[in-house]
């Protein structure tokens, strides 16, 4: 157990020393929030069906943070560990590569939570963020979103060979997820054609449920979105387990 904690500690250090990870998880969402906060404030806006810009953006940006850790950080770390034979090297110790893999999940999960906390804190202190939902419901939806997006990242790490290819695929998944799902640019401003495409991206559903939960709407109104998230999580997890290679 002590050794496992030691592995988590070192993986945590690796994460915090990766500038891109730190910037996009901890700083970028808040900077974006401040940018739009300064322009529009948090007054009720017709664009967001009477919600304030900040109130509508925070759940969307939570989705953005999960995408950074789940689609970029996690699969890139794992595929580089495989390419560098770090996973295999762990197999040649009394520990197992499973420990390093679990550590990566824990660290990315933890950093996601920290990123979300910073975002909410800034929104609350600076723009008087309003929250009408049920905390437990929001936490559950956030967790479901994390499982779903992380499982997609895991699938990338499992089926794509080599760090360079993983990087390309991660970017290919990452940018549509970022721009076509409402995570950065509100879907409400998009033409119908894009809205149709966005239905095929799991993050769209994740953000939709997040926004609903944030406003205190009943989760049962989002049954189909939740089902999609659960289905994606299960399918990606099964495929990952089937295709994942240690070396």
């Amino acid at each position: 157990m002590r050794a496992f904690i030691e592995i988590i500690g070192t993986e945590f250090k690796c994460f915090t020393r990766n500038f891109l990870n730190m910037f996009f998880v901890l700083a970028f969402p808040s900077l974006l929030l401040i940018l739009f906060g300064e322009i529009y404030g948090n007054k009720p806006s017709s664009l967001f069906n009477g919600q304030g810009t900040i109130d509508a953006s925070v759940p969307a940006y939570i989705g953005m943070i999960i995408t950074v850790t789940g689609i970029m950080s996690l699969p890139l770390a794992l595929s580089s560990y495989r390419e560098k034979k770090i996973l295999k090297r762990f197999k040649a110790t009394p520990m197992s590569p499973f420990h390093i893999l679990t550590s990566q999940i824990i660290v990315n999960l933890f950093m996601t939570v920290i990123g979300v906390a910073i975002l909410i804190l800034i929104a609350k202190l600076k723009y008087d963020l309003k929250f009408n939902g049920d905390v437990i419901a929001v936490v559950l939806v956030v967790l479901l979103s994390i499982f779903c997006i992380f499982s997609i990242g895991f699938l990338i790490a499992s089926v794509v060979n080599g760090t360079k290819a993983a990087n390309a695929v991660a970017n290919l998944v990452y940018f549509p997820m970022l721009f076509l799902t409402g995570a950065t640019i509100p879907l409400e401003t998009m033409p119908d054609s894009i809205k149709n495409i966005s239905k095929f991206l799991p993050l769209t559903h994740s953000i939709k449920v997040l926004k609903g939960a944030w406003q205190g709407k009943n989760l049962s109104d989002y049954g189909s979105d939740i089902m999609i998230l659960i289905a994606v999580t299960i399918i990606c997890s099964i495929l990952s387990i089937k295709f994942f290679r240690w070396d």
Binding site: T10, K13, C14, N18, K84, K85, I86, K88, R89, A92
Partner: peptide
């Protein structure tokens, strides 16, 4: 064990 062409976490 020393594996052929192993590396370790660059950021450690």
């Amino acid at each position: 064990v020393q594996l052929q062409e192993t590396s370790y976490q660059d950021r450690l």
